[in-house]
Design a protein around this nucleic acid. Sequence first.
DNA 1: ATGAAAGCGCTAACAC
DNA 2: GTGTTAGCGCTTTCAT
Lengths: 339, 339
Amino acid sequence: MRRRVTITDVAQEAGVSVATVSKVINGRDGIAAGTAAHVQQVVERLGYESSLVARGMRSQRTHAVGVLVAEFEPFSTEILKGAGAALAGTDYALLAYTGGGAGRAGWERRYLSRLSGTLIDGAVLVTPTVVDPVAGVPVVAVDPHAGPGATPTVDSDNLEGAMLGVRHLLGLGHRRIGFLGGRRDLESSALREAGYVQALIDAGVTPDPALLHVAEYRRDAAYEATAAMLALPDPPTAVFAANDVSAMGILDAAGRLGVRVPDDLSVVGFDDIPESASTTPPLTTVRQEIQQLGAVAVRLLLDLLDGSGVGAAGDAPGHVRLPTSLVVRGSTAAPRRTA
Amino acid sequence: MRRRVTITDVAQEAGVSVATVSKVINGRDGIAAGTAAHVQQVVERLGYESSLVARGMRSQRTHAVGVLVAEFEPFSTEILKGAGAALAGTDYALLAYTGGGAGRAGWERRYLSRLSGTLIDGAVLVTPTVVDPVAGVPVVAVDPHAGPGATPTVDSDNLEGAMLGVRHLLGLGHRRIGFLGGRRDLESSALREAGYVQALIDAGVTPDPALLHVAEYRRDAAYEATAAMLALPDPPTAVFAANDVSAMGILDAAGRLGVRVPDDLSVVGFDDIPESASTTPPLTTVRQEIQQLGAVAVRLLLDLLDGSGVGAAGDAPGHVRLPTSLVVRGSTAAPRRTA
DNA sequence: ATGAAAGCGCTAACAC
DNA sequence: GTGTTAGCGCTTTCAT
């Protein structure tokens, strides 16, 4: 395993100074055509490519943007696909990063501090818990923390989406509808809960606090919460989950408890991650355009980086909200007559 | 947008030298308890986190591993999920990287040169076209280029998998079965083709060169190839695609041409990416444990990095092959009597 | 116990 | 047209 070849190796091999090699690589002028050609040739032969790190350290631009995530799960990887697509054709590289302790709050600030300035020119933060502007580089947040912020933001119409999902259940005839909330710190979760409550009230149904649980967007937590709800004297005939992953937890619990979906229990999720089509039964869900979310976030970021950031499509701090839609699959049906 | 806070800022604020701050951060001893506490406090207050880049430049270890991909598509993002899961619990960070010109061959060497040594301690290369050992850091390849190599490798049993898929079609009664090959440079593609041919021969069917196309694992290329095959005087009643993405291209073409799947044409894919369950009709496919591929690759890499690399589970250059399985969904059926 | 200084690979001023 | 020098943020001897 040979050592990485450095600019010094190239310089020595070519019999010129390091500076000259640097100039050739970066296409600076003031180099004799012959020298340039020769150096170029040595570069090829040695397979040299300049270190992103050393380069970023010296110049201020690295020409790389980061997507910072707490974890690589279905939502963040969809974002990645969209971000990648939006970056294709530009000469920016894409760096997705997740460090160890994403459990602790404030991961996004620590990650940003580790990478910004020297590695990436800007970042997309996926479901950050904190969005403070002390970034050092331009930042765009996807599905961010609740509360105001100077940071440009991209999200879906969570309120309307939730209402779509719950109205679907109401339309099927359900009246006892449970809700599995997401991460308390995220605005999306709060809005989905608000949409759930609103849709019920609009339909003349009084929300029952006993049917409202928090599952943190996690499958195992959803499993537990579902078990608790189903043990109620008057259990729900349907549950609306704040995301697909927790909806899968509901399916797990129902399967274990011998509760048939959708016969005994209807389930609606949120997100429409690719995995949702292959659950048993396939999940009815509220679709977010997740890849679009990622693509838009990258475009906003690119605006911030290159185009002055002014006068582009929209002058405001940049806040884009994408529409949602209902995808009906096999996990919902009319409730059985309780007789 | 404030500047990133550096170690110098902390040192100044705390009234000590940079060296002292560095020692405190890295838990080196030889620091008065009081000083350490004070510095620690300033670190917290300023939200300082040392730059991955500067740190990696000086010390040789960065405690980050890279997953280098040509593009963020369904296969590579599944690898990422598996890699992330395998890394959870360790104190390694995960860096997924894709630069611009992945079109040109040799992207993996260039990416490696950009990142190795200073940013990542080791790398997982996803479907690399070239695997030469001139890396500078330990490398593990997933689904690599054909040919021998000193590099440890992880892949699926592509030969057996292909035979599984084709035998399924044969069992349904198909005899004219087309094949859409993948990237010529990948071993997986060659083996899937070999499995296709072998299964046909085993069943006494002579492979027809007119039914053998290359689609590069790409959806648009698959579309074209399918159109060509279906225009044949004696078109196939079934097509086996070397991956799911090209199988989707077949579905596209069939839809456009008014050919019904599976009534007029059966389709089998390879991979079982999450997206395959939600095509119309849902795709019958040969499942690879893609996340496992990623997880195993990371474990191999970690062995190389930490545990001497000797005596671990298997001393050989490290070559792991995972089993495949058939997932039957809606895109396959018995051929209609041509009568 | 603490600080000064060198150096990781590279680029940008500035000299020659 | 090319080389010398300084310095990006950090860790690590080596003095003090």
